[in-house]
Amino acid sequence: MDRIVRQIWQRVPVARISISGDIDQTRILDVLNKIENYNAFYCKEFLKKLIFYLEDKNEEINDELYEKLSELLSARPLNPTDTEVVSYCVVCKPGQGDQMIFVREAPNVISGLGTTGLRTWEASLYLSQYLLNSDQCDLSGQKVLELGCGTGLIGMALSKYHPTVKKVFMTDGDSQLIDNLPYNLQLNDIPVDSPKLHVSKLWWGEDGLPDSEINTIVAADVTYDSSILDDLISVIYESMTENKHSATLVTTAYIAATVRNENTIADWEKLLNMGTTDHIWEWSIMKPLKWEGIWYPDGTPEIRLYRLARV
């Protein structure tokens, strides 16, 4: 899928999309028809920009573009708290097409109803793409536990597109988010009772791990507040040292952290160093994944991917 079409799927703000080169108008119209049910206003704004570009270049314009724009003239922007279905490209391989995950979320809500999990954060997309595309990460035959799954992007991506992952356990401490996951699973044709997937509530520091043979822990954007870091590190610490009722110790953890506050990140790395001092793990920051499929808004802070390997 070309870059422009991928940006449309991921609802890149229209002002940020750079249109250039040859344009497959029929293909773009097909994508917009699918998005229209969720955000007609976005489709209208994109079509206006596309038609302006084509007219400025004296390109021949498909009459169906004008007809579609006419149909959408009355479309209004979504309310800030409205939900829509956003598509995320998690695998892009030449000749094989893009592999997408669909998520119902409230993309304009930073925090609501006591949680930040109503929208998909950039670090979740980054970690999903890293786990599926990097040759530095081997999850073959692994049972993977996701902490703070939120809208479910990472767990669904692994469950659907990682051919050799043994099982994925999606967990979150918010029961409301857990209750919302079946809808997103249905959007992606993932059976709720899939033997490759398990969804459950997990409150850090109180609930035990959902399986006795977890091999790998993954999490994204769970380091946003220093007040929760002790509980987070305790889960990882115990999973690598003394899993209650566990037959297997976790060997690796991948934590994607957005650097929004330097003090918070410093607190996080201080806890990581304590684990190293205790000879529990060695930690490192993985090299960034180079892939044009990743798009972030202007001003998005640095995203660091931490790898903890049990000693």
Score class of each variant (00 low, 15 high):
E71Q: 12
S20A: 10
S200M: 06
V168K: 04
Q7C: 02
G293A: 08
E84T: 14
R16I: 02
L127I: 08
W203M: 10
S124F: 07
L272N: 14
N62A: 15
I285L: 13
Y306F: 15
G114E: 05
R307C: 15
I255E: 08
L229I: 12
L232F: 13
I178F: 07
E55W: 12
Q142P: 00
L78S: 09
I35L: 15
E105W: 00
S175K: 01
S18E: 14
S124H: 07
S234L: 15
T26K: 10
Q7V: 00
G112P: 01
F46R: 03
A247G: 14
I228T: 13
T83H: 08
I178R: 00
G97K: 03
E242W: 03
K166Q: 04
S140F: 06
L125F: 02
Y306A: 06
L73E: 13
A309F: 09
A253Y: 14
D174K: 04
T276L: 14
G275I: 14
S134A: 03
F102M: 13
V31H: 07
V192A: 14
L147R: 09
I265H: 00
Y53F: 15
V86G: 06
N243I: 10
G152S: 06
L65T: 00
N33R: 12
A266E: 04
T120L: 09
R3I: 13
Y254E: 01
A247M: 10
V109R: 08
Q129N: 05
C89I: 12
F41A: 05
K160S: 12
D138H: 08
L132A: 03
L73S: 09
G97S: 04
E122T: 02
G148K: 04
N261D: 11
R119F: 00
I190G: 09
H279F: 07
V91G: 03
K287L: 11
H245L: 08
Q7G: 02
L113F: 12
V199R: 05
P301G: 03
R3L: 13
P163S: 05
K57F: 00
N62D: 15
S226R: 07
T223Q: 00
P80I: 15
T115N: 05
K167E: 06
I280D: 06
E59R: 11
N184V: 07
C89H: 05
W203Q: 13
D231W: 12
T164Q: 05
P163Q: 01
L308Q: 11
S159G: 10
I236V: 15
M1Y: 02
G205H: 07
R260D: 00
P195I: 12
L181D: 01
I17C: 04
E45I: 08
V5A: 15
K160D: 08
L181R: 02
D63R: 07
K166F: 07
E64K: 15
K34Q: 14
A266H: 07
P182H: 03
V222I: 15
M156D: 05
D24V: 05
E67R: 12
E262M: 03
K196T: 10
D211E: 11
E36L: 02
T276K: 15
A15G: 07
K34H: 13
K270V: 09
I190W: 01
N215A: 10
W204D: 10
Y254P: 04
D193Y: 06
H162K: 03
P301T: 02
T116K: 01
V311T: 11
S194A: 13
N33Y: 11
T81M: 03
